[in-house]
């Protein structure tokens, strides 16, 4: 593993400070659960807008209300976060399904307990991109991907899955170039070293806007209902800490609800959006001034599953694909990967 394992400065908010921020009234009106009060847990996060559910739940005291004292631990990439869950350094996190995640589940280390981001027809989702050079040479739709090179972080990543499924649907063959990091993939795509890639819209759109790459399709056309990211925890938490896990999902769910209603349904109008951007800006794009960060945060808005609903059909498809590519063991079952007892599951 060459990925950078550096962890960001730990951010810690204790209950008292957060209560102070929120005002005592709010804390008393929202009923605290009966079981564990002030239980310390660690939640892993990346500095992406898609992790806003955790940020909101922490800032607005939803975790506290659920009786949890949450410490956020930041990571540079999803993989070290998964390892940290397996090692017990982090209790809960959100990340994309990957070969690594399945492999860790197979080793009895982790369980998927809910869904986060998923593709939905009609809602802006992940884009298929072509490099300028390839676009000019005729790569204007995914049907022309045959013989092209497709970027991915590593074999068994979600990029690998998406590209492979698109190629399969179009009946073409592509070669996949592992480039380890999203930054490296973007560089390779801009300079025409690779021909195509797929990525979330808030990265895809500015890239396409600069003219260096072109959007040639939507992932949701090929993978409707694709369960992109999931909520996961250690197998031990899933089995032995059921109450704590439920409490986490409750707090997290409230954060997600706030995010969806404010950023997508605009329940709070412009003021609501601005307030939410301020909150998210504490964690995301912290190196940029607020006025520059705001458009990126707003552009990156994607609906996160209410109640952490989990598309079990998509997970099954992903597992089967990883197995067909010989990236994970053939004997792994869906039950090894998923603990479906916490949230509503559906076949989408």
């Amino acid at each position: 593993m060459i990925e950078i394992k550096r962890e960001d400065k730990q951010m810690k908010f204790n209950r008292r400070q957060t209560l102070g921020l929120m005002g005592a009234a709010a804390a008393t009106t929202l009923a605290a659960p009966a079981i564990a009060q002030n239980k310390k847990i660690v939640v892993g996060a990346l500095r992406f807008t898609s992790h806003s559910g955790s940020f909101i739940a922490l800032e607005r005291g939803y975790f506290n209300d659920a009786g949890l004292d949450v410490e956020l631990k930041f990571f540079q990439a999803a993989q070290p976060m998964a390892v940290a869950i397996a090692s017990g350094d982090v209790d809960y996190a959100v990340t994309a399904v990957s070969g690594g995640l399945i492999s860790l589940a197979d080793k009895g280390a982790i369980k998927v307990i809910g869904g986060a981001l998923s593709e939905e027809k009609g809602i802006d989702g992940q884009k298929i991109l072509a490099s300028d050079a390839a676009f000019k040479a005729g790569l204007t739709s995914p049907s022309q991907l045959g013989g092209k090179t497709f970027g991915m972080s590593t074999a068994g990543s979600s990029f690998h899955y998406m590209g492979s499924k698109v190629a399969q649907a179009e009946g073409v063959e592509m070669s996949f170039k592992p480039l380890q990091k999203v930054g490296a993939i973007i560089g390779a795509l801009k300079s025409g070293q690779i021909d195509a890639w797929s990525i979330v819209p808030h990265i895809a759109k500015p890239l396409a806007g600069s003219g260096a790459v072109h959007i040639i399709g939507d992932i949701s056309d090929y993978l409707p209902g694709y369960q992109v990211t999931t909520v996961f925890t250690s197998a031990k938490n899933a089995a032995d800490e059921r109450d704590q896990t439920k409490d986490f999902l409750t707090g997290f769910g409230k954060g997600v609800s706030d995010y969806n209603s404010t950023m997508i349904d605009k329940a709070g109008g412009e003021d609501g959006v601005n307030e939410m951007v301020d909150l998210i800006h504490k964690y995301v794009y912290t190196d940029r001034p607020r006025e520059k960060a705001a458009p990126s945060i707003i552009n990156g808005t994607m609906r996160i599953n209410e109640g952490s609903k989990l598309n079990i059909a998509s997970l099954r498809d992903q597992l089967e694909w990883f197995q067909s590519e010989d990236l994970v063991g053939k004997d792994i079952t869906l039950d090894t990967l998923v603990d479906g007892s916490y949230v509503e599951t559906y076949e989408g």
């Binding site: 593993m1 060459i2 993989q79 390892v83 990957s98 070969g99 690594g100 492999s103 860790l104 080793k107 972080s153 590593t154 074999a155 068994g156 990543s157 070669s175 996949f176 170039k177 592992p178 480039l179 380890q180 490296a184 390779a188 070293q193 690779i194 990236l327 994970v328």
Partner: peptide, 20 residues
Amino acid sequence: MLGAEYGIGAYILEAGSLYD
């Protein structure tokens, strides 16, 4: 690390990302 489909290094990196 970058753009190799085959090779001992690529094999190790892939195994690492798959926790194999």
